[in-house]
Design a protein around this nucleic acid. Structure first.
Length: 113
DNA sequence: CAATCTGATCGTCATTTAAT
DNA sequence: ATTAAATGACGATCAGATTG
């Protein structure tokens, strides 16, 4: 079964304490609507450009992490399958050993007459 | 048949681990 | 020390099963 769920959790609620810039929770989109600030002469980056760059970076990070999570889950599933098949093998092996033990016991047990 | 339960899957955040 | 990738945990969403 394939799911198409989109989990849209609160995306900017957690208190933004001190954290590295590459992890800023929500892009600084706090510019007064409609107000256009001219780029300072000589500067390559107006505040808008910086904001856009921030959102761009954030979206890229989310996308990468999304893919990383998928891959991580895939690997984990495979790992669990591996363990399960190992369990199956060991169970068979254990059963055989128990049987062998029983026959050896029979052979070695003193005769009861 | 609608309401509820259940298990699977997903995206995101926070944290840990690995790479530089 | 900084940055990127991997992973655990959480809540949201869906599909199918169960129940009254």
């Amino acid at each position: 079964m394939q799911k198409t769920g989109m989990a849209v959790t609160g995306d900017e609620i957690a208190a933004t304490g001190d954290m590295p810039t590459y992890q800023i929770r929500a892009p600084p989109t706090a510019l007064p609507q409609g107000v256009v600030v001219a780029a300072s002469p000589g500067s390559l980056h107006s505040p808008q450009q910086l904001a856009e760059e921030a959102t761009r970076k954030r979206e890229l990070r989310l996308m990468k992490n999304r893919e990383a999570a998928k891959e991580c889950r895939r690997r984990k599933k495979e790992y669990v399958k591996c363990l399960e098949s190992r369990v199956a093998v060991l169970e068979v092996q254990n059963k055989k050993l128990i049987e062998e033990l029983e026959t050896l016991k029979d052979i070695c047990s003193p005769k009861t007459d």
